[in-house]
Write a protein that binds this DNA or RNA. Structure first.
Length: 224
DNA sequence: CACCAGGGTCACT
DNA sequence: AGTGACCATGGT
């Protein structure tokens, strides 16, 4: 489907005016972005914060600490973030690859495309998790697509609701300057809108900054 | 109570 | 290539 590229910058500008600077990702290091990206898979960030705090309390916020941690203790530690059995395995696998690639310095030295492929090869790291690491951990100009992005922009009407990850990402890459700083802010703003306004059951379309451009609330559909 | 949350894998057609 | 089951906790 043809995507209305021209609308995207203006829509993002409106979110910026409405919500102000977001200053993402809530993490101190690139490695913490990796941990958060795995733990936040289909989980509320609130729960992820608990899990990360528990890892920090044990001094396990490093790749070597996690690969050396007893499996059962690691599972218990990240329990609040949900899916703790699979996420413990995914974290361990990610840390093994992280170390094989030379840690943060090793990844920093890699080309973005090569780093993306290497991280995608890890079982449990899909495109969104990997792009979180690349954009927020390593400041690479890669647009992060998530469920909020798809829901918001399909409601606006610029993309189909079942568009895949890469096609949706390509739409943003084509519509915006390839600037990591801007991509960072844009995705954070999308999350801010998705969390508080553009919800499945309670779309507060009346107060959405994308009105009246959004076809969803703008058409009078699903008013609450 | 059912539904949702900053996904991803696997086993089937 | 597409579809559905599965993973599991905490908040509303």
């Amino acid at each position: 489907m043809a995507i209305e590229h021209g609308e995207l910058p203006g829509l993002l500008d409106r979110l910026s005016e409405a919500f102000g600077p977001q200053d993402w990702w809530p993490a101190e290091t690139a490695f913490e972005v990796l941990v958060g990206a795995v733990l936040t898979q289909n989980a509320a960030w609130r729960n992820v914060e608990q899990a990360i705090a528990r890892l920090r309390a044990r001094d396990w916020l490093s790749a070597t600490a996690i690969v050396n941690a007893p499996a059962d203790a690691l599972r218990e530690c990240i329990r609040p973030s949900g899916y703790y059995n699979v996420k413990a395995q995914r974290l361990t696998a990610a840390c093994e690859t992280w170390l094989e690639l030379g840690g943060e310095a090793g990844l920093q030295a890699m080309e973005t495309g090569a780093a993306r492929e290497a991280l995608l090869a890890v079982k449990g790291l899909g495109p969104e998790s990997v792009d979180d690491v690349l954009l927020y951990g390593f400041n690479r100009p890669v647009f992060v697509v998530d469920a909020y992005t798809r829901r918001i922009f399909s409601r606006v009407g610029v993309v189909p609701p079942d568009i895949g990850y890469e096609p949706l990402q390509s739409a943003f890459h084509a519509a915006l300057p390839r600037d990591a700083r801007r991509f960072n802010e844009a995705h954070a703003l999308i999350v801010a809108l998705g969390k508080d306004y553009c919800r499945p059951r309670s779309p507060h379309c009346e107060w959405c900054p994308l009105q009246p451009a959004c076809a969803y609330g703008g058409a009078g559909v699903q008013r609450s």
